[in-house]
């Protein structure tokens, strides 16, 4: 069993979002880049599955689409414990391009289980995993909040609005994972950081892929009017405001 984890390279979630060039570009000044939080959870879970002896997992590979500036993100994943990394050398324009590029790599070197986070914390497209599966004509299971071996079969839990379902799916397939897949993302240890330097990181040339969407302009939300404070000794006033002013109760 070979596992591939798709990694997004995104601004840290505490980033104060700003735009430049007449609000057409994200301001990268001072931004800390990290592994997309859901992808980090997916990677952690992949490693947990691999380390559990008895599970037939041979390797965990990570893949990212990006120019040389994303390499620290891949090295971090290797330091966390991935066996090897792949970087597709281009600046992707949208999620469609990312999915098409990764699909091409998988076609020439197949994996049994492909893990993607449910969305990226920057553009919130929630599209790469599903698109990838369709390009490959693989089955996909989305909103997966648990993945584990029962004997030699993978069992997945999928969340739907109002409950959970347990699935099995023949390999190869794409699992699009969310919160709950593992408790906490793993942090690289010193030994891992040293070892990561020697792990293989392949750089692959991109194929031609069509750009179907384009971000034209960005906006920041308008400032909210200040919060109306209510005396803690007069909670009834809050109910009055919610009923008669906000009209939400």
């Amino acid at each position: 069993m070979k596992i591939l984890v798709c990694l997004g390279h995104v601004p840290d979630t505490t980033t104060k979002v700003k735009f430049v060039e007449n609000s057409t570009k994200f301001d990268q000044t001072g931004v800390q880049w990290v592994i997309n939080p859901w992808d980090e959870l997916a990677l952690t879970r992949a490693l947990e599955i691999k380390e559990d002896t008895g599970n037939p997992v041979n390797s965990v590979t990570v893949i990212t689409v990006g120019d040389i500036s994303v390499e620290p993100t891949i090295r971090k994943a290797l330091a966390i414990g991935a066996d090897n990394g792949i970087r597709i050398d281009m600046q992707p324009a949208d999620s469609g391009v990312v999915a098409a590029q990764i699909a091409e790599v998988i076609k020439s070197d197949p994996y049994d289980l492909i893990l993607c986070g449910i969305e990226s914390s920057d553009y919130n497209g929630a599209a790469v995993g599903g698109m990838l599966a369709e390009h490959l004509d693989y089955p996909s299971v989305s909103a997966v909040s648990s993945i584990k071996y029962e004997g030699d079969t993978l069992e997945l839990n999928r969340e739907f609005d109002g409950g959970f379902e347990t699935f099995t799916c023949p390999t190869p397939f794409v699992a699009v994972v969310q919160k709950g897949i593992t408790k906490e993302p793993r942090i690289p240890a010193m030994r891992g950081i040293m070892m990561a330097r020697k792990k293989p990181l392949a750089v692959v040339n991109p194929i031609n892929s069509e750009v179907l969407t384009e971000f034209l302009k960005f906006t920041l939300p308008e400032a909210k009017p200040p919060c109306k404070m209510v005396d803690p000794e007069n909670v009834g006033e809050l109910v009055n405001l919610l009923r008669n002013e906000a009209k939400v109760l």
């Binding site: 601004p11 735009f19 919130n124 960005f218 906006t219 920041l220 939300p221």
Partner: peptide
């Protein structure tokens, strides 16, 4: 985008 921290066209 950015989970509601910004908007986009």
């Amino acid at each position: 985008i950015f989970s509601g921290k910004a908007g986009s066209a």
